[in-house]
Amino acid sequence: MTNQSDYTSAELLAVMSARQLVDGQTVFAGVGIPLLAATLTQRLQSPGLTILFEGGVLGPFVVPGELPPTTNEQRCTRRANMILAITDVLLLLQRGYVDIGFMGGAEIDRYGNLNSSILGDPENPKIRLPGTGGGNDISSLTQMIVTMKHEKRRFVEKVDFITSPGFLDGGSSRKDSGLVTGGMHRVITDLAIMGFDEKTKSMKVEALHPGVTAEQVRDNTGFDIHIDDDLMVTESPTIKELEVLRHLDPEQLYTA
């Protein structure tokens, strides 16, 4: 058995995210926690999981201790099944070959819209962030799992700028805008696991991590979040999960 002090919050994020993936899925992964989580689940329970990188890689094998710094370096291509052009790997999303898009987030709102472009007034930005990369395409075209730290300043009522669309203004607005597939599936934080209401498309808490209270989640969320009555409690990361994770990232580049 492990207790909470045995792992970092980044490790908790990686483990909880990994458990959301299902064997046989094709997953578009960003670097950092998403890649770690996808690799973790591949090693532990889903050997048939296929990872895609937006740099143009299909089905690589990530070498422990050699995590790629971005999705566009040669390290991403280790023992891959195929290397293809960026445009073509992204078109796999549009064609429908991708089950899950998996990325981190800087700022998210009630309807799961993500902002990684601009903080403040878009006409006169307070902070210019790095931008969408493939994030917009991935979240426009497939089911998304987002993993991020649960903080009030990151969980806001309305993002300043929708970089990667969630359910836009809720209800059917995503479909109405022309995005007929995909949408936010899960948001995994260091406190809880969130899903989205089927009708309103508003974010709701589905499970809490061990030792976390509903109150804590409310206090760290910048909007009024619905909390399910039959709230589940997640299982602590196992020793096995943590061992594999630490083997993959021995220098704790992403899990410190």
Binding site: S117, N136, D137, I162, T163, P165, L168, S177, L179
Partner: peptide
């Protein structure tokens, strides 16, 4: 194409 619609991008 089918992405980018509805977003501020």
């Amino acid at each position: 194409m089918r992405s980018m619609m509805g977003s501020d991008v």
